[in-house]
């Protein structure tokens, strides 16, 4: 006698897979945000204990073959596993601190390419970003709306909401959130991150931040999909 085949629900399976993928993507954005904030003891400990590399490796596993270039960057990042807090602080200050050759880690510094009056445009940009964040009940620190870490954290938050939506089986909401993540990349982060990463690569001495920005560039390129700038 033939055993009846137990048939699973393909949509529930799919939602289960994407719950994990959205969680993983959020994890990558969160680590990037943490990495680009001013260094602290937690970052030093995460590096020393290999937590950063381990979590980012796990969180990009779903990319299959395309994980390889990211893994190469992660190995570069991990080369600074024994960096002390003062060393990281010095590298951070040299790159993003108050000095003549600093590299701006905020969107408004890259507007000059596309606008006639950058100062006016910066104000408009802040207002636009505040409105976007407000839609999701978020209010970043005043003046930090267009900073790299805040923008990365915002996408991480959207990924968290997307995770919850897939988990609840509300695919329409989840798809809408995925579109919002892509739109934020297309309208903001993805427009200036390539130039930021290029500046870091060209101007800075090798450090944890050059390795992290190389990872950020490759990751965003994969996330952005077709049409990403090939500046670097």
């Amino acid at each position: 006698m033939l055993n009846p085949v137990s048939v699973s629900d393909p949509f529930q399976n799919a939602f289960g897979i994407l719950t994990q993928v959205a969680r993983d993507r959020g994890c990558v954005y969160r680590w990037l945000a943490l990495g680009f904030y001013a260094p602290d003891e937690e970052l030093v400990r995460s590096l020393r204990e290999g937590l950063l590399k381990q979590e980012l490796t796990q969180a990009t596993y779903w990319l299959g073959m395309d994980q390889r270039p990211l893994s190469d960057c992660l190995n570069e990042v991990n080369a600074y596993a024994n960096a002390s807090l003062p060393e990281l602080q010095a590298a951070y200050e040299a790159l993003f601190g108050k000095n003549v050759s600093r590299i701006a880690a905020r969107e408004s510094a890259y507007l000059w390419r596309s606008v006639t009056h950058p100062a006016d445009a910066a104000g408009e940009l802040d207002r636009a970003l505040i409105n976007i964040y407000r839609q999701y009940g978020l209010k970043p620190q005043t003046g930090a709306e267009d900073s790299l870490s805040v923008q990365l954290e915002f996408i991480a938050y959207l990924c968290q909401l997307e995770t919850q939506a897939w988990q609840a089986g509300t695919s329409q909401t989840a798809r809408e959130l995925r579109r919002q993540e892509r739109a934020f990349l297309a309208d903001h982060l993805g427009r200036w991150l390539p130039e930021f990463c290029q500046r870091v690569e060209e101007r800075a001495l090798p450090s944890f931040y050059t390795a992290l920005s190389a990872f950020a560039f490759r990751w965003t390129k994969l996330e952005y999909g077709p049409g990403y700038s090939s500046l670097s």
């Binding site: 399976n13 799919a14 897979i17 994407l18 993928v21 779903w62 995925r178 994969l222 999909g225 077709p226």
Partner: peptide
């Protein structure tokens, strides 16, 4: 129309 997110690949049986 494809945004390259690969969700279709990931959920395909």
């Amino acid at each position: 129309q494809c945004g390259g997110c690969r969700y279709c690949m990931l959920v395909c049986p």
